[in-house]
Each structure stands twice: as C-alpha cells, then as structure tokens.
C-alpha cells in the first residue's frame, strides 16, 4: 500500500474527515529553509506535503506562486535539488507522504523514467504534473506505476463525466479538484458549488478527492473539509513565507498551518 493510501486509511480509522495538504515552493525563500519548513508543516498538522518544483513559466499559477518560483530559481533550485531535499527530509520523517507538483518540462529534461527512478529513491510518493492532462499521460503514468509512485491528476469545475472517467483510469493516491476557474491564489472559491460537485466525482474516481485553489482561512478549510477528503492550501502559506522576516518564517508558517488544522478538526465535531 502506498504511503498516501495508508494516510487516508489511517485518517478514516481515526474518524477524521479530511487530510490537510499544505503546498510550498521548494527553495523559497531559501533552499536551506525547505527541509525545516517541511518538518514544521508536519509538526503543525500537515498529513501530506505538496512540494512545488519551481518552473520558469508556471502558466497555471497566479502571481504568488509565480514569484515564489522566481525566487527559488534565482537561488539555483533544480529538480535534482528538490529530490535531494526530499531525501534529506526522509532522514527524519519516513511517514509523511510527499507529493511533487510542477510542470512537464523539467521532468522531460531529466527524462521521465530517470526522474521516476530518482523520485522513488528520494522517497517521493506521488507526482502531479500540471500540464499533463490524461490524454498525454500514458507513458508518464506507466513510469510512475513502475516505480511505485502515485500519479496525481487535476479535475476542474469544467471537467465532464467522460473526462473524470479518463482520469479515474490513470489516477492513484488522490485526485486534486481545482475549486475555481482560474489560477492558483485567485478569488475566493464557491463552497456550495464545490460541495455539490465532490460526491459525484468521488463516486467516479474511486480514490480520495482533495480540493484546492482559493482556500485561504480556517473557516473555508472547515467548510471544504466537510465534503472533501483533503484540503490543499498553497498560495496563502506562500504569502506568509513571503511576508515573514527570515528568522520568523518557521514560527509564522507553523501558526498558520495549526490554525488551518483546527479549522479542519472542527469539521469533525460538526
């Protein structure tokens, strides 16, 4: 069983509704802070970590993630360095699943199979390639499965049933429902619209459904946790990193993630 699947099963056994999945860009604000940040995320309540692989042209991301990616690239962060950081994190944490999220080109530059093998060796559990829709993902999904990695796919409010079925054929781990039409960090999401959509998607995909894009506070996290299997928070955390002086980054991110955690836990009691 994959670490991701085990995590969702454990949460269910504990009677908890939803996993908290924070997202950070690897190497932002500084490569030396990434592994400590990952541990801080776990300490403050993260169940799974999504680690963004910086790319020069993050077409599906808003300004916050785009600027974080530019900062990381300016400090020389490459896909190889991301994998090294995961391996370093694994030295002290062999439980928390790590999912890499990024764009196709850095992976193709390394070679999909080489990447899959290296990611497995580093201790990565799942990979989400934003610009690999299922139609273009056959060889990627195969390489992931050959190396015991979960290929994670996006679904959107615009996805038809036919496309959800297409994703269901390839996806394992969880699927990531993008809650609004837009890029990361855009306007607030429509909780009711998400709530209406999730049960149908879950029934079709057969794996847990995470929801992200537009979740900015504990209250929204709580509302989403009532319907989704996982709550993904990215831009809000990256903003916190951006606004914190270097010596306060860890403490402030911990405080924010703990708050989101409490929001999700309150959904359990409701």
């Amino acid at each position: 069983m994959s670490k991701i699947q085990a995590t969702f099963e454990r949460l269910q056994a504990e009677g908890r509704r939803a996993a908290l999945i924070p997202f950070i860009i690897t190497g932002d604000p500084d490569p030396s802070l990434t592994v400590p940040l990952m541990h801080a995320l776990v300490e403050s309540g993260a169940d799974i970590i999504e680690l963004g692989v910086p790319f020069s042209d993050p077409m599906a991301d808003g300004q916050t993630i785009q600027h974080a990616s530019e900062r990381a690239l300016a400090k020389g962060v490459s896909l190889r360095l991301v994998l090294e950081m995961v391996a370093n994190f694994r030295a002290d944490d062999n439980e928390t699943p790590v999912v890499l999220m990024g764009y196709a080109n850095p992976i193709e530059a390394m070679g999909v199979d080489t990447f899959a093998a290296a990611a497995f060796d580093a201790g990565v559990d799942g990979v989400l390639v934003v610009d690999y829709p299922p139609e273009e993902s056959a060889s990627f999904a195969r390489a992931m499965r050959d190396h015991a990695l979960d290929p994670i796919f996006l679904l959107a409010p615009t996805s038809t049933e036919q496309r959800i079925a297409l994703v269901a054929e390839l996806a394992s781990g969880y699927v990531y429902y993008v809650s609004l039409k837009g890029v990361t960090g855009s306007a607030e999401l429509d909780v009711e619209a998400v709530t209406r959509r999730i049960p149908g998607i879950r029934a079709l995909v057969g794996v847990p459904v995470g929801v992200g894009f537009g979740i900015r506070d504990a209250q929204t996290a709580r509302a989403i946790a009532r319907t989704a299997d996982a709550v993904v928070v990215g831009s809000r955390i990256i903003e916190e990193i951006e606004q914190s002086p270097a010596d306060e980054v860890l403490a402030r991110v911990k405080r924010l993630v703990a708050e989101l955690r409490r929001g999700i836990d309150e959904a359990d009691k409701a």
Partner: peptide, 12 residues
C-alpha cells in the same frame, strides 16, 4: 504538438 494544459482549459 498535442495538448499540454491544466485540466481547467481542456473543455474550452
């Protein structure tokens, strides 16, 4: 060629 975009754009 092909279609390498995020899911959001596929229906469009």
């Amino acid at each position: 060629g092909g279609i390498f975009v995020a899911e959001t754009l596929i229906p469009a």
